[in-house]
Design a protein around this nucleic acid. Sequence first.
DNA 1: GTGCCCTTATATCTACTAGATATAAGGGCA
DNA 2: TGCCCTTATATCTAGTAGATATAAGGGCAC
Lengths: 196, 196
Amino acid sequence: MSRSDQTRTAVLGALSIQPMSGYALREEIVSTLGHFWSESFGQIYPALARLEGEGLVERRDAGSRSSTFAITRVGTEQLRTLLAEPPQIAKPRNGVLLRLFFGRQLGPDRCRELVRERRESALRQLAELARARAEVEADASLADQAPYILLTVSAGEHSARATVAWADEATAALDGLATRATPARAGAGVADGGAE
Amino acid sequence: MSRSDQTRTAVLGALSIQPMSGYALREEIVSTLGHFWSESFGQIYPALARLEGEGLVERRDAGSRSSTFAITRVGTEQLRTLLAEPPQIAKPRNGVLLRLFFGRQLGPDRCRELVRERRESALRQLAELARARAEVEADASLADQAPYILLTVSAGEHSARATVAWADEATAALDGLATRATPARAGAGVADGGAE
DNA sequence: GTGCCCTTATATCTACTAGATATAAGGGCA
DNA sequence: TGCCCTTATATCTAGTAGATATAAGGGCAC
C-alpha cells in the first residue's frame, strides 16, 4: 500500500460508519479510532476534495457553513479494495526510549521520571479503553461489527498493560542503579505507583 | 520539544557513541536504535550539515569519498539539554488495527491472516531483541551504559510479547466468528502458530 | 442587547519525515 | 574487464502534523 492510500482508507472507513462533515470526521477518528489511528485536518480536507472528485464520496446538505460527506457505492467498493491491501508498517520513533538509551548522560532521576510519566499515561489509556469497551459492548446497534472493534480495543489494552509491566521493571532497575536510596523511601515510591 | 529537535537528538546521541560517516550513522541508528527509532537519509544529511554549521559536530578525516563526523564538546552539552526536554509523543497509525476495525467489510479470513502475520512479525522482533540483549550483556565496554540500553530492549520485549498474547486472543475471537469451521481444523491452526 | 468566548467548520500553509532517486567510488568475482 | 553489490553523499518528491487563518453560531455575563 502506498502511503497516499492510508488517509484515503481511514477517511473512507470512517465515512462508512455514517455520513458527516469534515470537522465531525476528524472528531470521529479521534474518538473512535484514536487509540490506534490519527489524521490531521491538513490531510482530511484535501483527501475529501480528492475523493469527491473521484466520485468515492459525495457532498450532501451543503449548508451555509457545513457540508455532509457520504461514501458512495463506488467508494464502498474502493474501501474494500484498500482494506485488502497489505498494511504499511509505521516506523518507530519513541522519544522516551531514545532518552532512556542515552540515560547515562541524562541521569537516573530524570530517567525514573520519564518511566513514571509513561506508566501514568498507560494507565490513563487503559481507563479510556475500558470506557470504549463498555460502550461497544453496550451498543446493540454495532451488531456484528462489535467483535472486530473489540479486537482493536484489546490490542490497546495488551499494549498498555505491557507498558505498565515494563515501567515497573524499569523503575526497579533504575532504583538498583541509584546511589544509596533508603529502603523505606524506595518502598514508598512503589506504593504510590501502585495506587495510580 | 519541537519536532525539529528529534532528528538532532538522535543524530547527536548516535555520534556520542563514536564518530562516524553519514552513511555509518544511518547504519548505527538502524542496528542499535532500530527497535525504537528510525531516521532516513533525507533527515540525516541535512541535519549533519546544520549541526556542523552550528559547531555541534565537526568533520574529520574528510577523504575522497567519505567524511567522519564527531560530536564537539558544545554538541555534547546540547545533547544533554535536548535529552532533558520532554519527549514528543508520536501519533499512532497502526494499519493492521485500522483493517481489523473495519473487519466486517474485510471478512474473517483476511482478518485472521493479518493477525497471524502480525504475530509472526512480533516473534521475529523477539528473536532480534534476544540477540541484542545477549550482545549488550556480553559487551564489557558498555559498562554503565548497559543498564539503560537494556531498558529499551526490555520495552521492546514486553511490547512484542503483548502482541503475541493479543494475536492469540484475537485468533480465538475470530475463530469463534467463523462459519462452521471443523474443530480439528481450528486446532491445527493453533498448533502451527505455536510452533513458530 | 451587546460583546466576549468557546465550539464548530472550512481550508491551507509550513515544517518535518519517509523513501525514492541520482550519482559515484571501491571491491570482489567470473 | 565488466558486472554487481556495498559504501557514500545528497536531494527531491510525496505524505503528514500541526499551526494558522478565517468565519459562523451559540451561550452567558454584564
